[in-house]
């Protein structure tokens, strides 16, 4: 074959070889098929561990009870038993060491999430005790009258 045909061929072969060599260095060893499908299981294996190491923010309810047994107990006995501490107090990670006091979400809007009356016939929302957020004691924090840990109207 003539050299003017062979020359570009050598260039092309060199390029492919170069890319393959570069690939060896750039692609991590654990990148490949980990599972039975090339379509779905072609990935970098160490990423699974990276996701497992993602820091959790919400802690267990048991951990809250270790120090705040009184309030947790009160809540457990009340109509708000279904609520979790962290629904209003925010995530417990870092408390009390780094974050001394957890911020409490005591806004009206937070209570209205459940207690703004929406009389929807096929949803349990309609069964919850509710008020019209726009009319009932406007601009006042709910906890001024209702104790969130013990929200019984009779004991008010």
């Amino acid at each position: 074959m003539k050299t003017h045909v062979l020359r570009p061929l050598w260039v092309a072969i060199a390029l492919v070889a170069l890319i393959l060599i570069a690939r060896m260095f750039v692609v991590p060893d654990d990148f490949g098929v980990h599972g039975d499908s090339f379509t779905y299981n072609y990935y970098r294996l160490s990423n699974v561990q990276e996701w497992k190491d993602f820091p959790a923010k919400y802690t267990s309810e048991k951990r809250c009870r270790r120090c705040h047994d009184e309030n947790a107990g009160l809540l457990q006995e009340s109509k708000h038993a279904r609520l979790r501490c962290q629904n209003c107090h925010g995530p417990g990670a870092g408390h009390p060491k780094e974050i001394e006091t957890l911020p409490i979400n005591a806004t009206r809007e937070h209570c209205l999430r459940c207690h703004h009356r929406l009389a929807y016939p096929s949803s349990q929302r309609g069964d919850l005790p509710g008020i019209d957020g726009a009319k009932h004691k406007k601009n006042k924090e709910c906890r001024k009258c209702h104790d969130p840990h013990h929200p019984d109207l009779e004991d008010m």
Binding site: W51, K52, K57, R84, N87, C114
Partner: peptide
Amino acid sequence: YHRITDGKEAACVQACPF
């Protein structure tokens, strides 16, 4: 994934009161 593989509930599951 970081929670369920560690024996915890997912954040939304834990947060749901209902």
